[in-house]
């Protein structure tokens, strides 16, 4: 067993390491960009909602429909569907760079929804108390809405990240690389079962670890 394990490492170690790095790259960049886009959209969804501070039916409905449309397209179809757009944004539609765009288009609306539902949980009364104290809206957003929902936000982002890891597995189709791609190309297409098992095990550890981390952080931030 030890000899076969070191043999395996010799043969595959580098590939697996490289694939892991690629996965981390894709996930972290796409996540960051998706948060930068999704979080403000989530806030906008809450603020323009009927009966809320900046009520605006047009913006709210437009955003709602737009998000629903994107959310109803499976990632694999989205990947090809927006190829021209991807090319226009980053100049290429292949490789890690080319896969970031569809990953963001896929994840940002999801994050917007998750943030929306997290922020909606915040007690309306606290916002009112801050309005009554003459606090500016942008400070209320930051110091009341986001602060009070931070535990739910962390949980939402954990879910989004795990979804993102799943989506990166399909990134191989446009040459994005990553663990999913490795398992598919070698494990499935070339019958290297060991590679498949190891990458799947790695993915499971990754997802489990992330979820535990997210749960722990959320529990720590929750004070009630």
């Amino acid at each position: 067993m030890p000899s076969t394990f070191s043999e395996f490492l010799n043969n595959w170690g580098e590939d697996i390491w490289a694939a892991t790095i690629e996965t981390f790259q894709m996930v972290s960049i796409a996540l960051l960009v998706s948060i930068i886009i999704g979080l403000p959209l989530g806030i906008l969804l809450v603020m323009t909602r009927p009966g809320k501070g900046m009520e605006n039916k047009f913006v709210y409905q437009l955003l709602n429909i737009f998000i629903n449309i994107i959310r109803s397209i499976p990632f694999i179809i989205l990947l090809f569907f927006i190829l021209p757009f991807t090319k226009w944004v980053v100049g290429t539609s292949i490789g890690v760079k080319g896969v970031i765009v569809p990953l963001v288009v896929y994840t940002a609306p999801y994050i917007a929804r998750l943030m929306e539902s997290a922020i909606l949980e915040v007690d309306r009364g606290v916002v009112e108390a801050y309005e009554a104290m003459g606090i500016k809206t942008r400070n209320i957003i930051w110091h009341v809405l986001l602060r009070e929902s931070r535990s739910s936000i962390i949980l939402g982002l954990t879910i989004a990240t795990i979804g993102l890891i799943g989506a990166t597995a399909m990134a191989g189709l446009v040459g994005g690389g990553g663990l999913g791609d490795l398992a598919y190309r070698f494990g499935h297409l070339r019958y290297e079962a060991d590679v498949m098992y190891v990458t799947v095990a790695l993915l499971i550890i990754l997802v489990q670890g992330l979820q535990s981390l997210g749960n722990a952080a959320a529990a720590r931030l929750k004070k009630d």
Binding site: D123, V126, E128, A129, A132, G134, R147, E148, K222
Partner: peptide, 22 residues
């Protein structure tokens, strides 16, 4: 100006309305 004026008008509520996380 309304925000300024509100700073001189305190208000308390039935539900207290405190930040749970602070």
């Amino acid at each position: 100006k309304l925000r300024e004026a509100r700073q001189k008008i305190g208000m308390i509520f039935q539900g207290f309305n405190l930040l749970k996380t602070a």
